[in-house]
Every structure is written in C-alpha cells, then in structure tokens.
C-alpha cells in the first residue's frame, strides 16, 4: 500500500493507494480508515483503490473553515482533479456514502458507478422523529449493538491499541461529531440535489443495521434516478468491517456489470 499526502487548498490530505486496474475511490465511514482494512484489500485484487482520509480523520489536517460533509466532497473532488481521474467508480460507507452522494450531485459526469453502503445524509422522515438514532445520546455499547450484527466480536478495547492509534480513533470520533451533530447526520439540501446523480447506484445495507433502516435506504434509492437497494445478511451498519468478503464480492459484481443495474427495488415515482 502506498501512502501519500496531497496539499490541496489549505488541507493536507492523506491518501492511500493499492492494487492495479480501473480506478476506484473508496470513502470511509465515521470510524476512519486503517490500512489493515480487509474490505479494501479485497477490492484491490482487481482495482486500483484510492482511499483518502477525510479532513480531520487519520493523518489528514482539519482546517478551521471545514465543518460539514459538503466541504469534504469538495476536497475529494480536488483529489480527483489532481489524479486526473475524469471517470471513476466510488464506494462510500456510512458518512463516506454521504460524501459520495454529495460528490455525485456536484460532478455527476465523473462517476461511472456508485455504491453507497448504509449511507446517511438525507432527512426524509417526519419533523418530530430522527431518521437515524442519536449516537450521541447512547452509550458506546448501545451504539455497537446498532452498528454490528454480532457486536460481541467487535467490543472496543482501548488496551488493544497503541497510543498513536488510540489518538487517531479519538480524533476521528471528534471530527465525526463536528460534521454530524447539527443538522443531525444529514444535509437538509441533499435530498433535493440527489436527482442530479446519473451513475447507476447500488445501495447496500446490512440486514441487522440498527442505524440505517430499510425504509431510509429505500428513501435514498427513491431520490437517486438509477438506483437499487440490496441487503447483505448477518451484517450491521459497518458492513465493510463485519463482512468484508461478502461485501467486496457484491461490490465487485455490481461494478463489473456492463449496463444499468439489475433492480431489486426500483424507483416507482
């Protein structure tokens, strides 16, 4: 795996690169990206995978002006400019899916195929109910039970990490808070912008995801013109971490499809 930094605007952007083949942009979720990620390793068997750490995550800097997911989408478009990638596939998990969706509304011509894994970022439900549970009002154990099919396997144990990694974990969590606290886990404008996305889009969700509901994933698909929803069983919100091989296999198959997606759930209007 190659480790790079790009100075773009006033952001020092960390990005990783592995594998060879057609370029694939991977956008990590709220936990951040760590190089031992099994899902990315699986993708890199057939693709050149490019993985930036969002500003404020990993070793990427966080400038004072940056405080929302839309800002991150602009930074990553600058990375694509720098890499000269005019057409690229993108896979985004959770808030990474939100970033991917924002990028797809800004520069639709640039994306060949899009996979959004348990994406957040839209508000479609009633005013008096959160669309996704408030992770800032729950204990870490409660959050884990929403995020994993089998939370016992992913119990957080600080003693398992070096100070450096723990520092990154804590900083990632802080940046996630900055980005998602208010409006909670969404950009009120995004749902009205998603109609600009033209790429065939697959929305995946874990069958045991307690965070992104099936209704919510379906709403996302309803807003993106050429999209479908599928479920991966025995997985929670963190698909890539919990079922890396099954997730990678489904993503690879979708990205390899020649034309439009085989639709399990299609926008009816």
């Amino acid at each position: 795996m190659k480790h790079h930094f790009l100075h773009t605007g006033d952001v020092e952007l960390e990005w990783h690169e592995m594998g060879e083949g057609a370029p694939l942009l991977y956008l990590h979720g709220g936990q951040g990206f760590f190089p031992d990620d099994a899902f990315v390793a699986a993708l890199a068997r057939t693709r050149r995978v490019i993985v930036p750490s969002h500003p404020g995550f990993g070793k990427s800097s966080l400038p004072d002006w940056l405080d929302c997911v839309t800002d991150i989408a602009h930074v990553h478009l600058a990375l694509l400019d720098y890499l000269g990638l005019d057409e690229v596939d993108v896979v985004g998990c959770s808030i990474g899916g939100w970033v991917a969706a924002e990028m797809g509304t800004m520069s639709p011509e640039r994306f060949g195929r899009i996979v959004l894994a348990a994406p957040v970022g839209i508000k479609v439900g009633p005013v008096d109910r959160l669309d996704v549970p408030d992770i800032f009002a729950l204990s870490q154990e409660q959050v884990a039970s929403l995020f994993y099919h089998d939370a016992a396997k992913f119990r957080f144990d600080a003693s398992a990490y070096s100070d450096e990694k723990l520092t990154t974990i804590v900083r990632n969590r802080e940046t996630l808070t900055l980005l998602t606290w208010e409006p909670y886990m969404h950009n009120p404008k995004l749902r009205y912008r998603l109609q600009r996305v033209t790429a065939p889009t697959l929305i995946l969700r874990g069958g045991s995801d307690g965070f992104v509901s099936a209704d919510y994933a379906n709403s996302f698909a309803r807003l993106i013109p050429n999209s479908s929803v599928e479920t991966i069983e025995a997985a929670g919100h963190n698909l890539a971490e919990e079922r890396p091989e099954a997730f990678a296999a489904r993503v690879e198959a979708f990205l390899a499809e020649p034309q439009t997606t085989k639709t399990l759930w299609r926008n009816a209007g």
Binding site: S139, V170, E174
Partner: peptide, 22 residues
C-alpha cells in the same frame, strides 16, 4: 449522568480523552 452526556466527543482535547480511555 451517563458518560455520553458527561464527555461528548470534542469537549476535552484528544490527548485528554486518550488518557481517559487509558
């Protein structure tokens, strides 16, 4: 007060939170 209200992410600096986790 449960810890998620007592110490929301970002209220204290990163290094202090690392010490808490230790």
């Amino acid at each position: 007060v449960p810890v998620h209200y007592k110490n929301p992410p970002g209220y204290v600096p990163v290094d202090v939170n690392v010490r808490f986790l230790r």
